[in-house]
Computed example of a mutant assay.
Amino acid sequence: MSKSRRQMIWRLMLVGSLVVLGLKIPGVEAVSMFIGVALIQPALYVVYWWLSHHF
């Protein structure tokens, strides 16, 4: 298994576990949790791209 595939699986498991934990907190709605996860992925990609091209 390639390093990038392992990292992708690890990241997916981490995000999934954080979503499960977040949904157990009273007052956290499932819709807002999924919107947050959907918005953070492009933001993380932009940060990764920025750091890999400017340093």
Rank of each mutant, 00 (worst) to 15 (best):
Val28Gln: 07
Trp49Val: 07
Gly36Glu: 03
Met13Asn: 14
Arg5His: 13
Lys3Pro: 12
Leu39Asp: 02
Trp10Asp: 15
Val19Arg: 03
Gln41Pro: 00
Val15Trp: 09
Leu14Ser: 11
Gly16Met: 04
Arg5Cys: 09
Arg11Ile: 07
Gly36Asn: 08
Trp49Asp: 13
Val15Phe: 11
Gln7Trp: 14
Gln7Arg: 15
Trp10Ile: 01
Met33Arg: 02
His54Arg: 12
Val47Leu: 12
Met1Cys: 10
Ala30Pro: 07
Arg6Gln: 12
Met1Tyr: 12
Tyr45His: 11
Val28Tyr: 07
Trp49Pro: 07
Tyr45Phe: 13
Gln7Tyr: 15
Val20Lys: 10
Met8Asn: 12
Leu51His: 00
Ala38Asn: 01
Ala38Trp: 04
Glu29Val: 01
Leu44Pro: 00
Leu51Ala: 06
Pro26Glu: 05
Phe55Asp: 00
Ser17His: 08
Gly16Ile: 01
Trp10Arg: 15
Ser52Gln: 11
Phe55Glu: 00
Gln7Thr: 09
Trp50Phe: 15
Ile35Arg: 05
Ala30Leu: 04
Ser4Ala: 13
Gln41Lys: 09
Ser17Thr: 05
Val46Met: 11
Leu18Gln: 06
Ile25Asp: 04
Trp49Met: 10
Val31Lys: 03
Met33Asp: 05
Lys24Pro: 03
Leu39Cys: 02
Ile25Ser: 03
Leu21Gln: 11
His54Ala: 04
Ile25Gln: 08
Arg6Ser: 08
Val37Glu: 04
Tyr45Met: 10
Leu21Gly: 13
Met13Arg: 14
Lys24Ile: 05
Phe34Thr: 02
Met1Lys: 12
Ile35Asn: 06
Phe34Cys: 02
Glu29Ala: 07
Ser4Pro: 09
Val47Gly: 00
Ala30Asp: 03
Leu18Trp: 05
Val15Tyr: 10
Met8Thr: 09
Val47His: 05
Tyr48Gly: 06
Trp49Gln: 12
Val28Lys: 04
Ile40Asn: 06
Gln41Ala: 13
Leu23Arg: 01
Arg11Phe: 14
Gly36Cys: 06
Leu12Tyr: 14
Leu18Ile: 02
Val20Arg: 09
Ile35His: 02
Val46Trp: 10
Leu21Phe: 13
Ala43Ile: 04
Met1Val: 06
Arg6Cys: 03
Val37Met: 01
Trp10Val: 01
Trp10Gln: 14
Leu18Phe: 07
Val19Trp: 01
Leu44Gly: 01
Lys24Ser: 14
Leu14Tyr: 08
Ala43Gln: 06
Pro26Thr: 01
